[in-house]
Design a protein around this nucleic acid. Structure first.
Lengths: 199, 199
DNA sequence: GCCGAATCGAACCCCCCGGTACCATCTGGG
DNA sequence: CCCAGATGGTACCGGGGGGTTCGATTCGGC
């Protein structure tokens, strides 16, 4: 029975639904860990619909990754802005948010990094790079407001802590990874702020 | 022409050759980015030989990853032991070695992480976890010798910096990633040593 | 009410995947 | 010198991959 009787015929909503459902499945199984047929069955959509919206499996993957990158970034930005005006509190909020993520049952590492790790398509790697750019902007902003001597340097070091904590949590042990990284980040922040002659 | 005329019939050497050649190809192309047929052609070995030695593509992958993990670990351990007795010099040596790696034309991130990112086989993920364990041992040892108040905590934070630097170098910008991480690591080391009442 | 757009379901396409089987050929130890 | 074992080469297999097509059906705007 094509087009279920009670369904709403709305391409944009369909597209959004596909992205949302595909995000979860592709994250859990891996980009190459599930075929388009099974993917469609899980999502509850026909292959023709999927290909009409995204053209290619790779097109779907890119749409999924872009959406996820934006969602995650906004989530972190909100955590920062909810933490008040103190840059130290803002930085701590980042790692607290990350720890929440690590502790979830569905945590499987950073989806963008996972994708870039094995999916050798330039467009996918570009999405990952842009994702890291966004993180870097956020962290550099905190470093700047904290009066760090070299905010760009500190921002980069904080980015390494964020990504390192995520990697360790995903592939080694998630217990306290966020807290431990947070402590290290605050130490770096203090040191960089103290060293600033203009602070 | 089976068995080329001048060849040496030595199973162990054949196995080692396959692992060595496959390591490079699988790292460059990704585990799922190349089929067994093309892989064999690149390595210069027949499928039957490969399957006799490793049973499965996955068996080959695991053998490759184990060998690589051990090689890389020994390489880092040597860099540390070549750096003298000062823990600070030893820690700096780790990140200098990493920067050398990042600057190479073949750098594509940590092979073990790449594998675990999308290859959802328990055995592969176990190899990655063990790999991180080895790194952690190395770094915790340095933290301990440096008189850190909590060497296990500092070791873990250093591990995050190592992995974070590798991720950033692979997917964002390799320029100076090792140096920046090294500076952060030395800051953490100093702070942890100063904080130790028994230091 | 009608017609185009959206969707489903299923069949179909070609290709390549991992893995097996067979045989000719060469090596190496006895 | 001879035989077991290692290897190359090739053909083959079943399965599943991504992607296309088509007809039936329903929705939505006009």
């Amino acid at each position: 029975m094509p087009v279920p009787k009670g369904s709403t015929l709305d391409p944009e909503r369909t597209r959004a639904t596909i992205i949302q459902a595909a995000t979860a499945v592709l994250y859990e199984r891996g980009l190459d860990g599930i075929g388009v047929a099974e993917l469609c069955a899980r999502i509850g959509v026909s292959k023709e619909t999927l290909y009409r919206h995204f053209g290619t499996k790779d097109g779907l993957v890119q749409a999924v990754l872009k959406a996820r990158s934006e969602r995650v970034t906004h989530w972190l930005v909100k955590a920062v802005s909810d933490a008040g005006d103190d840059p130290r509190d803002q930085l701590a909020a980042v790692f607290d948010a990350l720890q929440q993520w690590y502790d979830g049952p569905l945590f499987r590492g950073c989806a963008m990094l996972n994708a870039a790790a094995q999916h050798h398509v330039e467009a996918v790697r570009a999405i990952t790079t842009r994702h890291l750019d966004r993180y870097l902007d956020l962290l550099t902003g905190i470093a700047d407001r904290a009066g760090a001597a070299q905010p760009h340097l500190l921002g980069r070091q904080l980015l390494m802590l964020v990504e390192g904590a995520t990697v360790v949590a995903a592939h080694h042990d998630a217990t306290g990874a966020g807290e431990h990284a947070r402590q290290a980040a605050l130490t770096l922040l203090s040191t960089a702020a103290q060293a600033n002659p203009c602070g």
